[in-house]
Design a protein around this nucleic acid. Structure first.
Lengths: 299, 299
DNA sequence: GTCTATTACGTTGGGCGTAATAATG
DNA sequence: CATTATTACGCCCAACGTAATAGAC
């Protein structure tokens, strides 16, 4: 058996193959030849005594064993990175950070944090994937998963970034048109993932009140809802950070200052190794800091 | 820079050097030559850009960076082991498990669990070190630390094995001699690490009662205390498991059946990686099982 | 036919051991 | 002076790339 291979290099190659779903693709990425990749994969399988990847000429699929190894391999490589990073004299970060974030937050709020981070660290690349559905963290190969709501994977380390305040907003005109009408009868603009036809709001004392509404518009996109609200079509529940400037300049107003929707937790999930590359650690801190400023829990 | 070394092999060599405090010693252990070890260490230091070990011809000391790496290296090597183990078809365990245990428990109760384990797994070697004082886990290079009382290191994973019941015991003769005398006035045999001259016992309802005693004998060794108690010199607080057979055959009796000393927690501490070699994982389970039987919490 | 993975094979360079050197107590 | 770490040097094999082969869509 070949004992001369760098075991970590073997893992790197394996991960690359899994990501590219192709030996030759991995070879191109790694700047080496197809046979070399093939040999390394074979060597890894020999060492572990297990078939990791079932390969035909036009298809490559991971075996269950391979899938298991993928997560472990990524973690180990991350830890080696972390070991290297720790001893870097210059604190210049480098490498790639893979982030998965919810679509709405990822294209507005968080992206600003990410761009700041990239400006601060010119040699850092960020893969920025926006997805709202749950993911299989281990299979994605991402370093950091930003998520609204709870994280359905207890193998991950979860840090709560914020609990965003949400309030009912509308334009002055819209309110004037429906003056005297109670909240239930107002034209509602609802956001699919979080609200149905029953809306629950809490008063200052925290007691819930349920409103049965018939939405004027329902959407799964917060920007659409936002636009409709600004046009005066109806009232909508919005995160404070999202409408902060509109509230300031009066474009939108706080329709029910004594009522609030449940705070939505925003979480950050990480793979559960003990050491992470410095770039990942620092990125998480940057996001946390950004949230502390822009999603501050002021109430 | 040499990129052909197996990075994990470099870590293995490094750890071995750190343990043996000698390059040539490590070379002997690893079945290779002195120069090879020297080269590997140099290669590792080059890769990390850091001096890990300050070496003179007759002395070898780890730098702070080296000390840091030592823990990480051990963890990574353990994880590689775990990856290999997981795919073993035959469930025969092999390799070495390093355990640190408290002296008293380690030479009596736990050693039985360890011997059982070795019988069940012929290819497993156990390094069995008995120490009562706190250790710097990361520097010891042990896989598993059994400890009485809390574990003063929050970087470790801690599992509580048991909370041992402790009761006051003495011989019938001893009690007869001091009949009618209250507990405080009895000749006490106290165990240094856990008791001073003030002894706290709890009644059935859990309310504490403090006794100021003047020990007839104080020792730091539980076997000495046990022997003295069996000779009828005085009464002593003993773990139930320690005196169970004596209580059964009447050699010792439960002096104060309605009073108990505080239960002592027995913990098992592990390094905080996510994956451990199968042998370590199974050993821990075996110890846990053994405790569940022989240190059962029956009250 | 085209893309793929595997096998074949000669090359090469990096790590090895042996031997010599230097350094420390 | 004994023991140790480092440098020097030649050897050698293992991993490489190129090329050829085989297989799948």
């Amino acid at each position: 058996m070949s004992t001369r291979f760098d075991r970590l290099a073997l893992l790197e190659t394996f991960v690359r193959i899994a990501e590219r779903q192709s030996l030759s693709g991995a070879a191109r990425d790694l700047g080496t030849s197809q046979p070399s990749v093939s040999r390394q994969l074979a060597a890894l399988e020999n060492r572990l005594g297990v078939v990791l990847i079932r390969r035909t000429t036009h298809d490559v699929t991971l075996t269950p064993d391979g899938l298991e190894l993928l997560a472990d391999a990524r973690r180990m490589l991350g830890e080696w990175e972390a070991i290297k990073d720790r001893h870097r004299k210059d604190d210049a970060l480098m490498g790639t950070i893979r982030v998965i974030a919810p679509v709405a937050l990822g294209q507005s709020l968080f992206i600003k944090s990410a761009t700041h981070f990239m400006k601060d660290h010119p040699d850092v690349t960020i893969d920025w994937w926006l997805r709202d559905d749950a993911i299989r963290f281990a299979e994605e190969g991402c370093d950091c998963w930003l998520k609204i709501g709870s994280v359905p994977d207890d193998t991950l380390i979860v840090r709560e970034l914020a609990r965003v305040e949400r309030l009912v907003v509308g334009t002055t005109e819209c309110l004037a048109q429906h003056a005297g009408i109670d909240l239930e009868a107002m034209p509602w603009l609802t956001l699919g993932p979080f609200e149905g036809n029953r809306i629950e709001l809490f008063d200052e004392s925290g007691t819930p009140k349920t409103f049965a509404v018939t939405p004027k518009m329902a959407s799964d996109n917060i920007f659409a809802v936002y636009e409709a609200a600004k046009q005066g079509v109806g009232i909508a529940i919005m995160p404070r950070w999202f409408v902060a400037s509109d509230l300031e300049d009066g474009t939108l107003i706080d329709v029910a200052p004594n009522l609030r929707a449940a705070r939505l937790p925003v979480n950050l999930a990480l793979a559960s190794g003990t050491r992470r590359p410095a770039r990942v650690e620092q990125f998480c801190e940057a996001v946390q800091d950004y949230c502390d400023v822009h999603l501050r829990v002021d109430a």
